[in-house]
């Protein structure tokens, strides 16, 4: 992914850095607001970060909207991103977004549900106030990258306690390691495919998986982290 987002894996992890990451997501993908919510059964913790205006945050909390908000409760059970238009017939949606307009919050948005390996579930929600056509075009365009970003945020948040971090030590396959090793040696993806006798697409799918297992957004970050963890050799 060609991103100008700061990789969260290197950040000292605090609420501020997560919220500023949400700001970056909005800037990068032309969005108004972003919110992340996740539950970690290993640490029995619930995490939430949003860059909504304070007034809306207070209103949301005071009225306990998280107990009825279908963009959290319903969307978390999907495997695919849920466009909020799919939820607007639900009772909770009407209640949640009835007041939202007064706070300048649009009901045009989508939620990306993330499932982790230990029963952990996360949701990255994003909004943008625009026409339906514009929204459909934008969401189609940003979905693939947004999917990766959602998993990146989720994995990072889930690793914020010691036990979870130990459980989530990157388990790279031999294929993923050898591809990263050749990339570290300065080979292009095309070269790596030729050297290993596999298709460009196979290199790509393993590289993407390797990157995400290493909690990296870019290949150089992944290579750096793999060296640091002793999974590949520095050359």
């Amino acid at each position: 992914m060609n991103v100008d987002l700061i990789d969260l894996g290197n950040e000292s992890r605090n609420a501020g850095s997560f919220v500023s990451f949400l700001d970056q997501i909005c800037a990068r993908f032309e969005l108004d607001h972003a919110a992340y919510a996740g539950t970690n059964p290993v640490a029995s913790a619930v995490h939430g970060y949003v860059n909504y205006p304070d007034a809306w945050k207070h209103h949301y909390a005071e009225n306990g909207l998280h107990r009825i908000d279908p963009t959290l409760l319903v969307a978390s059970r999907s495997i695919a991103p849920v466009d909020w238009s799919r939820l607007d017939h639900t009772e909770g949606f009407e209640k949640t977004f009835r007041d939202a307009r007064d706070f300048g919050i649009t009901n045009r948005g989508l939620t990306i549900p993330v499932r982790g390996p230990y029963g952990d579930i996360g949701m990255l929600s994003v909004t943008r106030d625009c026409s339906v056509t514009e929204w459909e075009k934008l969401s189609r365009q940003i979905l693939p990258d947004l999917q990766s970003v959602a998993v990146h945020v989720h994995d990072t948040v889930m690793r914020s306690d010691v036990l979870s971090r130990a459980l989530r030590y990157p388990a790279l396959s031999t294929r993923e390691r050898e591809i990263l090793q050749w990339i570290a040696a300065g080979k292009s993806q095309q070269d790596v495919g030729d050297i290993l006798g596999i298709s460009h697409r196979t290199v790509e799918v393993h590289l993407r998986s390797g990157r995400e297992k290493l909690y990296a957004l870019t290949t150089p970050q992944a290579v750096g982290r793999a060296i640091m963890l002793g999974l590949i050799y520095p050359l």
Binding site: P117, Q147, V151, S173, V205, R208, S209, K213
Partner: peptide, 24 residues
Amino acid sequence: TGPHMLSDVFQVLLDGEPPLRSAT
């Protein structure tokens, strides 16, 4: 990214290697 057949019951197909895990 979460529990699925290759990570939980079909590992034998992967020759003991960890499965691919990716958002996409």
